[in-house]
């Protein structure tokens, strides 16, 4: 679309025209954002469209080298696929468990660090270490800590009766819960920092006034802090929930979905179909299903987050 300077000046003098070509300054604006848009289109929009197309094909790498159109076959299979529904259920438990535990860990830590003290900023930095440690390292570190012979965490859990002889990761009944602990451990710092930032923004006068009225610290927490943290808690819960629901690497590296599929969450199921069973089309179908869920989650998130902007 070549636009001469002359055209542009004519257009810009009639800004109300519906299909007005952009004026010179707007064109500069478009030019600056073009590289970023190119990356987004090539690496994300096109793969999404391609993935949707793949989900309507039949492409099993061991049988054919190219996809053939198969209509809704993949989606019909999805509806009757017990492994899919079980994985979805596990992802639900995994997501809710992770976020709940993150909150339980983060709240007391944030309260402790919400003070004026020389050490709190250092401790906040230290607290964030699990968040910035690469997943692969977190995964192996916890595998060692859960080791049934030499694992420190396993030993302590055994002493308080929460673990038996076997590692929690080796027992189908406990493996998912052990992984939820690891996942929450990695995500909790992020929740804590967000809670802490909001706590610091609460004006001190509120507490002073409440103290004058005879409110105990416990009452101050329940009646002032907690209600003012509601919004950030919901927003961060959704962000970390989406992150957990779509996570893959932590579980894959620690258990590969085992023992006997006990930790096969949706991301792991998709990856196994793709990577081990080479069922490209069906893996793409599950990807599209996960994308549809993401649109629902994001709509909820945007509603809640925009309410936050209005409140502020």
């Amino acid at each position: 679309m070549a636009v001469s300077a002359n055209d542009a000046s004519i257009q810009s003098s009639k800004p109300r025209r519906l299909f007005a070509l952009p004026d010179r300054r707007s064109r500069v604006g478009y030019a600056f954002i073009a590289p970023a848009l190119l990356i987004v289109v090539v690496v994300s929009l096109y793969p999404i469209a391609f993935g949707i197309w793949l989900s309507f094909t039949d492409w099993y790498l061991l049988q054919s080298l190219t996809p053939t159109f198969a209509g809704l076959a993949g989606y019909r299979r999805l509806l009757g696929d017990a492994d899919f529904w079980q994985s979805l259920g596990r992802s639900g438990v995994w997501t809710i468990g992770t976020v709940a535990l993150e909150y339980v860990i983060a709240m007391p830590v944030a309260l402790l660090l919400n003070r004026r003290s020389r050490i709190t900023s250092f401790l906040t930095g230290a607290l964030l270490l699990p968040w910035v440690t690469p997943t692969i390292v977190v995964a192996y570190t916890w595998r060692w800590l859960f080791d049934s012979q030499f694992g420190t965490v396993h030993y302590l859990l055994q002493r308080v009766g929460l673990a038996g002889e076997r590692s929690l990761l080796a027992d189908p009944k406990t493996a998912l819960w052990a992984l939820i602990l690891v996942s929450a451990w990695k995500g909790a710092p992020f929740m804590a920092v967000a809670l802490l930032a909001t706590m610091k923004s609460i004006p001190g006068d509120l507490y002073e006034a409440a103290a004058v009225d005879g409110a105990t610290r416990r009452r101050q927490f329940l009646d002032i802090t907690l209600p003012l943290l509601r919004q950030v808690s919901v927003v961060m819960g959704l962000v970390l929930g989406i992150l957990a629901f779509y996570s893959f690497d932590l579980v894959w590296v620690i258990t590969k979905g085992g023992p006997s599929d006990a930790t096969q969450i949706l991301g792991v199921y998709l990856f196994r179909l793709f990577f081990e069973r080479l069922e490209l089309s069906y893996a793409a179908t599950i990807g599209v299903a996960m994308l549809a869920l993401l649109i629902v989650f994001s709509a909820v998130y945007l509603r809640v987050a925009s309410r936050q902007d209005n409140d502020a």
Partner: peptide, 13 residues
């Protein structure tokens, strides 16, 4: 907000 796992299959292809 787009998780990698959702586009990994088409992107690799």
């Amino acid at each position: 907000m787009l998780p990698g796992i959702v586009i990994v299959v088409p992107l690799i292809v």
